[in-house]
């Protein structure tokens, strides 16, 4: 499989703190890849680097055959590489439906599309996606009125509306009611299988990530500590030590 996302030797430092140190990893087309590591190990920094949130110090990032290291956030998003946020970000004063509607892909957008009302297909698709994440009954409520977990689901629906090729999910199950986690996992698998979206997932819930991902990368102290299939990672002594704090 050719990697759709290719991170080569990426280094990012904030002042004296090296948050990512020479990270190299590949996300193959159509896969679900996991990214784990203790708090502060540089997972979210890596996500931010990939989507162009800040310039990287060294290395390069390739997406779908082109280098994106120097592109800016909206440009990268329009190429079809999207991320969700750990602390969810939605448009608080707009209704859930509007939140999803405005998340349509913005690739080819002339003045006319910008200024004309939404065609009904868009609304239908948005409603379908809200149904998919279980928020259809709440579609007219304001985004800001929802609980953290519901906002997380809304953010997922928004991301799907954008029809990304690759979706970076930052802790998709954090804050989600435990009874919903299994069905959310099933949804994520369907997003991957049915909609053909490649997923790259940061997750702290080990049960979830081991079940979901085909291949897992583990970061610690800004460096790539280990990689491999879930079974191997689970038994990797270095990974266990990293989580338990041994050095």
């Amino acid at each position: 499989m050719t990697p759709i996302l290719d991170v080569r030797d990426v280094t990012k430092a904030f002042g004296g703190v090296i948050a990512n140190d020479g990270i190299t990893l590949k996300v193959p087309q159509g896969a679900i890849i996991g990214l784990i590591g203790p708090n502060g190990s540089g997972k979210t920094t890596l996500f931010n680097s990939i989507v162009g949130y800040h310039p990287i110090d060294r290395g390069s990032i390739w997406f779908d055959g082109r280098e994106i290291s120097r592109l800016r956030v909206p440009q990268i998003a329009r190429l079809g590489l999207l991320r969700t946020f750990q602390q969810t970000r939605i448009y608080g004063k707009m209704s859930c439906l509007e939140n999803v509607q405005i998340s349509v892909p913005h690739v080819h957008e002339g003045l006319r599309t910008m200024l004309s009302p939404y065609p009904s297909e868009v609304t239908e698709r948005a409603e379908g996606l809200l149904e998919f994440v279980g928020l259809y009954p709440k579609r007219h409520l304001r985004g800001g009125e929802m609980s953290f977990g519901q906002q997380k689901l809304l953010e997922l629906a928004m991301a799907l509306m954008n029809q990304p090729k690759v979706l970076l999910l930052d802790e998709p199950t954090a804050g989600i009611s435990p009874v919903l986690i299994n069905s959310l996992m099933e949804r994520l698998k369907r997003i991957n299988a049915d909609l053909g979206v490649t997923l790259f997932v940061i997750e702290h819930n080990m049960r979830v990530i081991m079940n979901l991902a085909q291949h897992i990368y583990c970061l610690a102290h800004g460096q790539l500590l280990a990689e491999g299939p879930p079974e191997a990672i689970q038994t990797d002594q270095r990974v266990i030590d990293a989580y338990l704090g041994a050095r």
Binding site: P74, A77, L82, I90, Y91, S103, H106, G143, N162
Partner: peptide, 12 residues
């Protein structure tokens, strides 16, 4: 509501 999010979603 959130300009950073709007950028992250690819809005011009």
């Amino acid at each position: 509501d959130d300009e950073d999010k709007a950028e992250a979603m690819g809005i011009h």
